[in-house]
Design a protein around this nucleic acid. Sequence first.
DNA 1: ATTATTATTTAGATTTGTCTAAATTATATT
DNA 2: AATATAATTTAGACAAATCTAAATAATAAT
Lengths: 219, 219
Amino acid sequence: MKLTVAEENYIKSIYKLQDGSTAVNTNAIAYELDTKPASVTDMAKKLKEKRLIDYEKYQGITLTTEGRKLALQIVRRHRLWECFLVEKLSFSWDEVHEIAEELEHVGSEKLVNRLSEFLGNPTTDPHGDPIPDAQGKISKSKQLVSLDKATTRRLEVAGVSDQSSALLEFLHAKGVKLGTQIDVIERYEFDNSVEIKIKNQPAFTISEQVSKTIMVKPL
Amino acid sequence: MKLTVAEENYIKSIYKLQDGSTAVNTNAIAYELDTKPASVTDMAKKLKEKRLIDYEKYQGITLTTEGRKLALQIVRRHRLWECFLVEKLSFSWDEVHEIAEELEHVGSEKLVNRLSEFLGNPTTDPHGDPIPDAQGKISKSKQLVSLDKATTRRLEVAGVSDQSSALLEFLHAKGVKLGTQIDVIERYEFDNSVEIKIKNQPAFTISEQVSKTIMVKPL
DNA sequence: ATTATTATTTAGATTTGTCTAAATTATATT
DNA sequence: AATATAATTTAGACAAATCTAAATAATAAT
């Protein structure tokens, strides 16, 4: 099945928002895609017609098996390109999302598989997210904790759950990247902010909001 | 200036057809883009509005300086991706055109320049066509002759002036690729066909039509 | 249970890129 | 020069993807 760029973006967003089996609501998709709820309804009808989503008026949206398969292909393409950009073209962590967003829509199966091979069939992208294989199998997600819930003092950064440029740039500026070791200096209960420190850098404080998006692995 | 995919394709076709300073006519563009002359007229108005082409009713189309600059950027992107596909992902000569056709529309300047660097700033693509540099400078074209006009017996294949899959597949099957050495066995005057031979292969004959598209360098 | 609020859908319009069919202009032929 | 042929443009239409504004349904609050 050949999809338009717009259709692919909807499928991808629905996949992203449909964590587990919850039906995704119109507003959430509209917000995610920076469009209007009315447009989402329009597209929902089209995608239902193509049997990529289950959709009944006012009842929210879930992907069908077919839809999920396509979503995984798109995610695979996106994450492989991110690997390529970081590893081969020396882009930094926080620059690659927008570019991969465009590259992911180039559809050739052969291209994607050759690219994967060229990169050594990586299983996670530069943000620490797992890359589905050619069959759509994806490792059950990183068994990681967000920084706000971590219990140990020393941690390793394994990913971020938010791809917004502003956040990634902030982290980049602070020297926080994939694999960075972090020491938790202090947790402030009054606003749940966290003071952290990375080697050879002055300590700094991050808000609860940010700490929720940083995924870490206890060391 | 940010162009749509359709606009980029028009600019690229006009550049390709406008060899030297000849104005390009509507029909030629329509044929090249597999669309209808009426659609070309519509787009011509838009591109004129954006000052990328000079266009007066019934008088044909030429690129403005700005338009030519954009065309060269698109050509650069296309040819760099072709290099990448052949050199890094081991695609064969005849498979890359369609894929590069999609990749060329990914606009990031930084991406293109990093890609070029990664490839060692190549100056010709796998078909032997010159790659414009970041400033749009392009080596004055290959000073090559088409096979039908070549005078020497031993030649080296340096490019093909037609990108159609059928032709490229034919040449691929015969073992003719960039850099292949060819010996001209015989030229038949009655139909201008040429019998050629490449090392360790039986000789075979190609039509005048094909011989016109194969660009060679005398050895 | 009524009302207020929020979410969602419908209806109608817009933009981009395309099309067909008819009209117009340019070019070639006699 | 008149006419035939080819190239080009106009007019009017369509599909995709979006929008705004109004209507409807679901949910929360009193």
